[in-house]
Amino acid sequence: MTRWGRAVLPLAVVLVVVIAVWYAGAAWLNFDVTANLAEDDATTWEILQGTMSQDRPLLPAPHQLVAELFSSVFEHPIDSPKSLIYHASVTAFAAFLGFLIALALGIGLAIGIVHVRTLDRSLMLWIIASQTIPVLAIAPMVVVVLGNIGFTGLLPKSLIAGYLSFFPIVTGMVKGLRSPDPMQRDLMRTYSASGLHLFTMLRWPASMSFLLPSLKVAATLALVGAIVAELPTGAQAGLGARLLSGSYYGQTLQIWAALFMASFLALLAIGVVDLFRLVLIRRRGGRL
């Protein structure tokens, strides 16, 4: 078998199984509701057909979800609140802004930690410990408190997204900047490289292979942060708002569509990081 076939065939088989189980689950979960709504003389077969086209199914059938995604993405103008693209862009923009903040602060702090012993000793333990803490729990408080002093909308969301993605960036970057071993540093010294050269020509390039995996984690965390930040104020726009209003009004199709859109955004973010990695590898002549 070709390499392509080895990778794709198993995935295709598993996907087909998942979709088959999904249809079976939809028929099973929606059966009772459909049977109650159906006319008395409906046959089991008619009810089963009905389970595939409920308005508010417990589990929407895959083709319903595809139809909902299609209509909410393509059949409304992008600036209308009915368009899923509109909501996705609101959330994605907040996440992206937060990610940029985290990137700048995280790399800056990592450089400080690597060069200043006091910062290293004071902060590293707290940064590592903070990864065992559910920091997302502070999201509602940050949103409401910032709202009280007049900041609403984009800023609180970006701050939470940035706060979440900050920690993996710092830890990855500190590890990366420290990754050159003493022999490589000694070599730089024999070239009589200055501190700046040591940084720009050895530490910085070496850190990239540690930064990139952290960026993937950080990007998905930023997205989660932006979505959760939309929950407490009952925001009007954004994927989190879609999830919340969907759960208030029992609009399951809307919830599932928002979830799929969020997953798509996460994959897109990871894809962008991968693309960046490929560009970097090409510019460096084939390796990272």
């Binding site: 979960l29 417990l58 993937k216 998905t220 997205l223 989660v224 979505i227 959760v228 994927l239 999830l243 919340l244 969907g246 759960s247 029992g250 399951t252 919830i255 599932w256 928002a258 979830l259 969020a262 997953s263 996460a266 994959l267 990871i270």
Partner: peptide, 14 residues
């Protein structure tokens, strides 16, 4: 890689 916490409303329904 997905924002799985988003399935919470669905699980509440189930």
């Amino acid at each position: 890689a997905m924002p799985i916490v988003g399935i919470a409303p669905i699980m509440v329904m189930w």
